[in-house]
Nucleic acid binder design. Sequence first.
DNA 1: TCTGGGGTCCTAGGACCC
DNA 2: TCTGGGGTCCTAGGACCC
Length: 425
Amino acid sequence: MIYSKNKIALVDCNSFYVSCERLFNPSIIKKPVVVLSNNDGCVISRSTEAKLLGIKMGEPYFKVEKIVKKNDIKVFSSNYSLYGDISRRVMKTLKQFSPQIEIYSIDEAFLNLSSIKDDDLLEFGNQIRKIVLKWTGIPTSIGIASTKTLSKAANHIAKKEKSGVINLINSKEIDKILEKIKINDVWGVGRQLTKFYIKNKINTAYQLKNMSNNWIKKNTNVFGSRTAMELKGVSCISLEVHQEKRKNCCVSRSFGNKVTRLEELKEAITTHCLNAAEKIRIDGQTTKKITVFIRTSPFQKDRNYYANAKDVDLPFETNDSIELVKQALIVLKCIYKNGYRYQKAGIILSGLKDINIYKKNLFSTISNEEKRGKLMKAIDYTNIKYGRNALSIAQAGLKKKWNIKRQHSSKIDTACFELLPAVRA
DNA sequence: TCTGGGGTCCTAGGACCC
DNA sequence: TCTGGGGTCCTAGGACCC
């Protein structure tokens, strides 16, 4: 057999955020590097060298600060516009290898390789790695298999191998590979399922593969049985080639410093609302419901915890910043309680719909709806051209004392020529 | 002192209807 | 006074992903 039916590659960028920082700062190549989450809170990307020093994924920064100082680990605040930009370049490159591509996250994509001969798959994978590295500077790992879950598993092993590519199509090694994968590293098996499986003596992907369908169906849900079937090589999760528009839009941030006053919460909620409204306008969507939530730190056990959320159904579909802010602030007042040190606030727009479905509401309370639409367009245009928040509304505040911390920013902007890396012949 | 942010999907249970 | 069974729709919360 030359052609197997399903051939799916998972291409995953290695330590993606770290790799992006390295592009613009070659002096940190081969050095231990970490990138921190918003607010410099947690470690969310680590170079191999940092992993070897024992830095764990998702660990709070203050807990690893000692190791960082001791080993001179380079630290960066996250720079999402940079990573987004590099991600687009990587995905564009991948599309050349297969137009049937599902962009699964900022740093990984599934490719349909069904048109490639079985015997050529490994070499094809090598080519992808080579070209992506050459064109974008980003190193990748590739797993190729007959289902998404298996290609994830193959990728997991590929990351640890020097070759960087593992092909499981027609491979006699599948079971050997699955034996190496711990149950909690299987795609689709999270904390709860891990607990359950381990209790039932299922400790590896291989053991899960060999459980009877009946048992899995009886004891887990559709998710569980899908994952197990996929490990057996039965495709249950299809490739989503068409990028669906999002159904919800959430914007939230932790504060750089704890917030107590309603005024400051108002500024934050207003800012988040403006950002969310801009996002859905760019995607050509409207919303019907807005949720506002605030909370104190769940980690400070010595203080009372308070978290609350409330939503409001809007009288009509909209993406008008001013209207959304107005409604959000009314809700915020309802849930705000004096005397707490708030750690985070955010909003969620849900029930998003395509703007084409939007029917002009006769009872719209926004007077001059057309004018307002033009105003929004003008704001978006200005902000794209002159930088985010070039144009805002007064309610969002100017000082933003609550704003996030970014003490390790590399300040790289891919739109800025001076910062482009120099090429030496 | 300091602990991210943004998504999707599934399910159980309530409300409502005939 | 006795008091059924089945269906749909919606939502909150949980689990999972990166």
